[in-house]
């Protein structure tokens, strides 16, 4: 996997964060704002990160896409200086995030079990703004995060979507250059998710660099410039959303059959199969050989449908292909 430079026009259009700097300084700004080298981290027996290399480029929205337990949150923690890697290195704005210096340029929306509920939205943001050297004016934070209407409510009185917006506000209030959004829309309904997406797009328009983790492929597709697919602590695929989709696009076969689900699963080329009401849904790389095999085994096969796989199925195919490769290599 090679590193492509951001096209120059993209840097200039996107990057407003150092608009006040002399042009020469702007040109010299390097493309990479954060990177990791051979990052390894385990919790006891569980390997969270396995030799992970990544680079976050200035002004991009990079999505880390992966199932639960893929190591996304651990990676964010390492880049924020919250967890120490076992080996390998992480660098954010050219320094080790553990030094405690770089946090003034970072914002983070993390998954939190419980936020102090008795403080009002305004009070939470007033406090977090005070941590940063050059925070946004409070009203601007409220406006971007959609908190203006609820700024005088206590955190404990808010709905799930509103709570997420407060955490989003906490991430942006310091006017950081690099933002980490860890599963920002998990548990939100469709409407709240769309709202969060539009708020994230405001950050991109302002030239911020964003690292987003998600396990929704459509979210990564909607927001990201670049997607890294993570599985079991390692990068299994990297590319633009279009590339990721085209690489992963398999076919989906739907049919009713007298065959047992185990038997279908054993057919070569079947990535996964699930029973859906009285029909089976198969994810495959190529449909024709599988259909041929199915018809041979079950002449009464009916209701046959072959479609392009959806995004979630594509994602499944990506991570499963990788697993198969890994097994083959051993």
């Amino acid at each position: 996997m090679s590193t492509a430079f951001l096209p120059p026009h993209q840097v200039q259009v996107r990057d407003l964060s150092n608009a006040g700097m002399p042009r020469s300084a702007r040109v010299q700004q390097p493309a990479s704002v954060a990177c990791t080298r051979n990052l390894k981290k385990s919790y006891g027996e569980i390997v969270a990160l396995h030799d992970l290399n990544l680079e976050v480029r200035r002004g991009e929205l990079l999505a880390l896409l992966g199932p639960n337990g893929a190591g996304k949150t651990t990676l964010v923690q390492v880049l924020l200086g919250l967890a120490r890697p076992d080996s390998g290195s992480a660098s954010v704005f050219g320094v080790n995030p553990f030094g405690g210096q770089v946090q003034a340029r970072l914002g983070a929306m993390l998954q939190v079990g419980r936020v102090p509920e008795t403080l009002k939205v305004r009070e939470h943001l007033d406090l977090f703004s005070s941590y940063y050297p050059n925070p946004l004016p409070l009203d601007e934070t409220f406006q971007i995060a959609g908190l203006t209407e609820i700024k005088d409510r206590r955190y404990g009185e808010l709905s799930g979507g509103q709570k997420q917006r407060v955490l989003f506000g906490i991430a942006i209030c310091g006017n950081p250059d690099l933002l980490f959004l860890d599963e920002p829309t998990v548990g939100l309904d469709v409407e709240a998710r769309r709202l969060m997406w539009s708020q994230i797009r405001i950050l991109i328009e302002r030239g911020k660099t964003v690292l987003l983790t998600t396990h929704y492929l459509n979210e990564a597709d909607a927001l990201a410039d670049r997607i890294l697919v993570l599985d079991k602590g390692a990068v299994v695929a990297e590319g633009t959303p279009a590339e990721i989709k085209s690489r992963a696009m398999g076919k989906q076969i739907r049919c009713t059959s007298r065959l047992a689900i185990e038997e279908i699963r054993q057919i070569a080329g079947v990535l996964s199969v699930k029973a859906d009401r009285n029909a089976f849904e198969l994810q495959v790389n190529a449909a024709e050989p599988v259909v041929r095999e199915l018809l041979q085994r079950d002449p009464w096969l009916a209701d046959l449908e072959v479609t392009n796989a959806g995004l979630e199925e594509a994602f499944l195919a990506l991570t499963q292909n990788h697993n198969a490769d890994a097994k083959g290599g051993n």
Binding site: M1, S2, T3, Q29, P30, A31, S32, V33, C35, N53, L54, E55, R58, S91, F93, G94, V95, Q101, V102, A104, R105, D126, L127, S130, Y131, Y132, P133, N134, V235, E238
Partner: peptide, 28 residues
């Protein structure tokens, strides 16, 4: 992933003394 990147220069704006005092007071 063989990458050749140059670390971004770290420029962390410092918090002024009055902002530091305000921070401790607000936290309390």
């Amino acid at each position: 992933m063989a990458t050749t990147t140059f670390p971004a220069v770290l420029a962390v704006p410092r918090r002024s003394l009055s902002r530091t005092i305000a921070l401790y007071a607000k936290e309390a």
